[in-house]
Design a protein around this nucleic acid. Structure first.
Length: 779
DNA sequence: TGGAGCGTAATTTTT
DNA sequence: TTACGCTCCA
């Protein structure tokens, strides 16, 4: 025991040790980025076991399967994993729903509908309610319903007294949607939480039982919990209050999905005798990176202040790169990666992150043209592929014949000549007679209305009958049978042979997944396999060890770290995203969330961080003038080095920089190497206002300064001698902004400055309350 | 029934 | 730019 104790407490700093050894009562661990949070949770779990708590009395909750797997693995290494409950919130929900059964109004064979299923069902519900999609978008209804479920509101309780006409409509659709779910014996992701929370709310005896079973509760990423999750955690710790919440309010980036930052901010109010531990020492990043991050996030109000510090070396300054246009940015980054990989670094050391996926294209092109291997951690997942969903739908129908969504998916896949007309009639009959869709199909002969389709439907029913025994067979066999007997395999084969995509390979990967599932699971059942499939996401498949540059959104980057990180498109309207800048929307405080997003991105970097932006980029197909993100003006100027890169064609002829001569940072100025025909052309500025808030009354261009019509000596005498386009300045009235052009002459210096919210303004510097915000580029 | 052609809209997406 | 959803036609 003593030995184990030692290893559990080894290499912990003081606050970490306090968190690990805390025994009973509520504990809040506020963990800054890179502060060893996962280590604390796993050690704490191991420590509880070492001090005599049976592992099966501990429940650890995470948000992703990946986090759950990782935690399980690390606890096992510490010799304490056996019997501990380590689940995602949703997996726990699914498991408890199976236990609760009728109390939660579900049959044990229930299907879990994913987002796509849910949306389709909402559309069906809207049709049933005669609510046109032009009236209200299905996605909006979906979001509203999701919000309602987070608050445990049933349709009857939905937004009573809100007064919005729209809400009545949503309420009707919500009710119809719930009926459909029930009919299909299905639940959506939110139900996995909502129904559990409701059962707990209404059944104290169950709460009591679960409190005995789970004596210690550990929750990771507590800042991302929504209200339903909050309630579940609260019920599960009601009697013993042994709740340990870990997280970081500054890394809450899912408020738009219902995460309630208040849960973590108010933890101490909810638990007045809570012990609070702050993990403020950062082991990941250099001092400068951490400084930049800290200063930025300090601008937020909704937070718990932490003083992040590190013993790591300060490292080089954080780079702020300014480009004339988005293509330069991509090229420059690709060149830098290629250069650094030529000597000390590997491709896997680099990550390029952005706010929206649309930005990735240009980056991909640049990387590809240099033969740099990359991968994109994108939302298009394995289990979302059509062919995979098709196979899974067969399994779903076998397990849960009431699952009409799955039935509709497979009834004509592969094509069996059962088209929209027939489906319409099937639905009509089902509605008229109050039958399940599958029963109408099975009894097709009884309905003359179906005419010629009867024979096809009978053949389909036959197929299902032949597949039925699958349910009892091994999961991998069931998958194989469905593939073969349904004709899916043949049709995919055909597609491959005629030169199409090899989607068969994907399907075969599903068979492998089934085999793996059988090996890992004690009593593998088809129901469980389907549950697993429904609850995995692609996030779980991001492999950090691959020897590739990683491209991803800021959201996808959370929880990861890389030696070198580029955050691109730091522009007003992109990061912060334009939607967060619109005032008066229901998304209050979303600017703070954007800032947190930026904070998350910055703190992914271990050694080197580059923040870049461009003055113009192609967005939605047209050139749009951009201005630098306000976040660039909010970071610590002392830890930053700004560099602007402009095409040679636009640069001052007075002092042309020698092409290919590395500057003091070891970078080659890429722009000078472009052959003339590849240099950016003069362009009219794109339509203003689409992105960002630029009044482009002035030419939003950087040519002015660099034309060379200034007198270098005059400039030297001026106190604005070192002012340059691209640098950040601040104005007493307008706040931080960025210099667009600057022109000295006749004792006064004129300059134009672009401000995030006020647009571009021209000043006589000698007369204006403008001051430098950061030191400019050297050289 | 399925494909071509057109119009429209456009974050992020742990489960 | 592009992706998707809808309509219309063979």
């Amino acid at each position: 025991m003593a030995l184990q104790d030692l290893s559990i407490l080894a290499d912990l700093n003081e606050p970490q040790r306090r968190a690990v050894t805390h025994r009973d009562g509520p504990l809040l661990v506020l963990a800054g980025p890179g502060s060893g949070k996962t280590r604390v949770i796993t050690r704490r779990a191991a420590q509880l076991v070492a001090s005599g708590v049976p592992a099966r009395n501990i429940l650890a909750l995470t948000f992703t399967n990946k986090a759950a797997d990782e935690m399980r693995r690390r606890i096992r290494v510490l010799g304490a994993g056996e019997g501990m409950w380590v689940y995602t919130f949703h997996a726990l929900g699914a498991r408890l729903l199976h236990e609760f059964g009728p109390l939660a109004r579900v049959e044990p064979s229930f299907t879990i509908y994913d987002e796509a299923d849910r949306l389709r069902l909402i559309k069906t519900a809207m049709q049933a309610c005669e609510v046109g999609e032009h009236l209200i978008q299905p996605q909006a209804v979906q979001a509203d319903i999701s919000r309602a479920k987070n608050r445990l509101q049933t349709p009857e309780q939905y937004d009573i007294g809100s007064g919005f006409v729209e809400d009545r409509t949503v309420r009707r659709v919500y009710a119809a949607y719930e009926k459909l779910l029930e009919k299909h014996n299905a639940v959506d992701f939110d139900d996995l939480l909502m129904r559990v929370a409701i059962v707990l709310r209404d059944h104290p005896e169950i709460v009591e039982r679960l409190n005995i079973r789970f004596r210690y509760l550990l929750i990771d990423e507590y800042q991302d919990t929504n209200h339903a999750q909050y309630l579940i955690a609260d019920y599960l710790s009601q009697q013993h209050e042994n709740i340990c919440a870990t997280g970081d309010p500054d890394q809450s980036i899912y408020a738009w999905r219902g995460a309630d930052l208040g849960n973590i901010l108010d933890f101490e109010r909810d638990h007045p005798d809570a012990v609070v531990v702050r993990l403020e020492q950062n082991y990941r990043s250099t001092g400068n990176i951490l400084r930049v991050a800290s200063r930025l996030i300090a601008a937020n109000h909704k937070r718990k202040v932490k003083d992040l510090w590190t013993e790591n070396e300060p490292g080089g300054p954080v780079r702020v790169w300014s480009f004339a246009e988005g293509r330069d940015e991509a090229e420059r980054i690709a060149a830098t990666i290629a250069e650094q990989c030529a000597d000390e670094r590997a491709y896997g050391d680099f990550a390029i992150v952005y706010r929206i996926n649309a930005v990735s294209r240009g980056l991909e092109e640049s990387l590809r043209s240099r033969g740099i291997p990359y991968r994109i951690a994108r939302g298009l997942e394995f289990y979302n592929r059509k062919e995979i969903k098709d196979v899974v739908a067969y399994l779903r129908v076998l397990v849960n014949p009431a699952d009409a969504l799955a039935l509709l998916r497979i009834i004509n896949t592969p094509a069996r000549g059962i088209g929209a007309t027939t489906l319409g009639r099937l639905r009509e009959i089902a509605a008229e007679r109050g039958l399940a869709l599958i029963d109408v199909v099975a009894r097709a002969r009884e309905f003359p209305k179906l005419k010629t389709a009867v024979r096809k439907l009978a053949a389909f029913t036959d197929l299902l009958e032949r597949l039925r025994p699958c349910v009892e067979r091994r999961v991998s066999d069931a998958v194989g049978d469905c593939l073969r007997l349904s004709g899916l395999e043949a049709s995919l084969e055909e597609e491959r042979e005629s030169g199409g995509e090899d989607r068969l390979a994907n399907v075969q990967e599903l068979v492998s997944a089934a085999v793996r599932f059988e090996e890992e699971t004690v009593e593998p059942t088809l129901v469980e396999f389907l549950e697993r499939v429904s609850l995995v996401s692609d996030q779980d498949r991001v492999d950090e060890t691959a020897g590739c540059v990683t491209l991803m959104t800021l959201h996808a980057a959370k929880g990861l770290e890389f030696p070198v990180v580029f955050i691109v498109g730091l522009e007003q309207g992109l990061l912060p995203h334009e939607r967060s800048l619109k005032q008066g929307s229901r998304q209050d405080g979303s600017l703070e969330e954007e800032r947190r997003l930026c904070f998350v991105g910055i703190t992914r970097a271990k050694r080197m961080l580059v923040l870049s932006h461009a003055a113009e980029r192609i967005l939605r197909g047209s050139w749009v003038p951009r201005c630098a993100s306000q976040f660039l003006a909010e970071i610590d100027p002392e830890a930053v080095q700004c560099e602007s890169f402009r095409p040679a064609a636009r640069r001052a002829p007075l002092r042309p920089r020698a092409a290919q001569e590395p500057d003091e940072d070891g970078f080659v100025r890429l722009d000078d190497q472009l052959p003339p025909n590849e240099r950016p052309r003069e362009r009219r500025p794109g339509r203003p206002g689409v992105f960002g808030t630029i009044e482009s009354d002035a030419e939003p261009d950087m040519i002015e300064l660099d034309r060379g019509d200034r007198d270098p000596r005059a400039q030297e005498r001026s106190r604005f001698a070192d002012w340059e386009p691209g640098m950040f300045v601040t104005h007493e009235k307008y706040g931080p902004g960025q210099v667009v052009w600057i022109r000295p002459g006749g004792g006064e210096t004129r300059a134009s400055v672009r401000f995030p919210t006020y647009g571009e303004k021209t000043f006589i510097l000698e007369l204006s309350p403008l001051s430098k915000l950061e030191r400019g580029r050297k050289g």
